[in-house]
């Protein structure tokens, strides 16, 4: 029976609908058609990202990073049904806590990214909008731009995305990214050094740097 589902969030590429799976509260992430791009490209991007996202979420869980549980993947409708998390986005939390708490959260972010990277999981869109604090754990969502890649370049780019997100969204707290790197180093140890050096290189490649 088709029930009209409520859209609880509309992102850039997907709608999040409130749903149920068996008796669990769930959300459906549905990648919507984009009329601005041609059909071939639209299909390629939507199916590739849906597939990749489901795969990477499972890999992330195996590496010890909290992610929502996947209940179902429907490639025909470009939809992933997953666990509903009651928590709040880090984006909304980080600017409203004490420096001590902020430091703790940022270190946790860094530790989680390190766990992903030590298993060659590249998230592809690490921003504080894509992290949910729930059950005292930071859950990572939105792996649609991710990939499995062991290269230092890919890991550096992954961290660079977060650095830019901090500069644009949490500019009042310039220490955030340093705390993230502290957490990152605490897990990856000496392996972290070449990756962190890479970030500098990526910054310099940009315009007017």
């Amino acid at each position: 029976m088709a029930v009209k589902k409520k859209i609880i969030y509309r992102g850039a590429e997907a709608e999040i609908l409130l749903s149920k799976y068996m008796n669990y509260k769930a959300v459906e992430k549905r990648r919507i058609e984009k009329g601005y791009r041609i059909k071939e490209l639209d299909h390629k991007l939507r199916s590739l990202r849906t597939k990749e996202e489901a795969k990477l979420m499972i890999e992330a869980r195996k590496s010890g990073v909290a992610v929502p549980i996947i209940y179902d993947v429907d490639l025909e409708n470009y939809t992933i049904t997953m666990e509903y998390l009651e928590g709040k986005r880090l984006k909304d939390i980080l600017n409203n806590v004490s420096e001590k708490e902020r430091k703790k959260l940022c270190k946790m972010i860094g530790e989680n990214i390190a766990r992903l990277h030590s298993n060659n999981i590249i998230h592809g869109d690490i921003t504080t909008s894509n992290m949910i604090l729930f059950d005292d754990k930071i859950h990572f969502i939105d792996f649609g731009l991710g990939e499995i890649n062991s290269e230092i370049e890919a890991k550096g780019t992954d961290l660079h995305v977060l650095m830019e997100a901090f500069e644009a969204t949490h500019f009042k707290y310039p220490n955030c990214f340093d705390y993230v790197l502290q957490g990152y180093k605490s897990i990856l140890k000496e392996e972290a050094e070449p990756i962190i050096r890479k970030i500098e290189e990526i910054v310099k490649r940009g315009r007017y740097r």
């Binding site: 731009l145 995305v161 830019e164």
Partner: peptide, 13 residues
């Protein structure tokens, strides 16, 4: 005729 070419998005970049 669309020829498949690399499509590169990194976060918002």
């Amino acid at each position: 005729k669309y020829i498949d070419l690399p499509y590169s998005i990194k976060g918002m970049d």
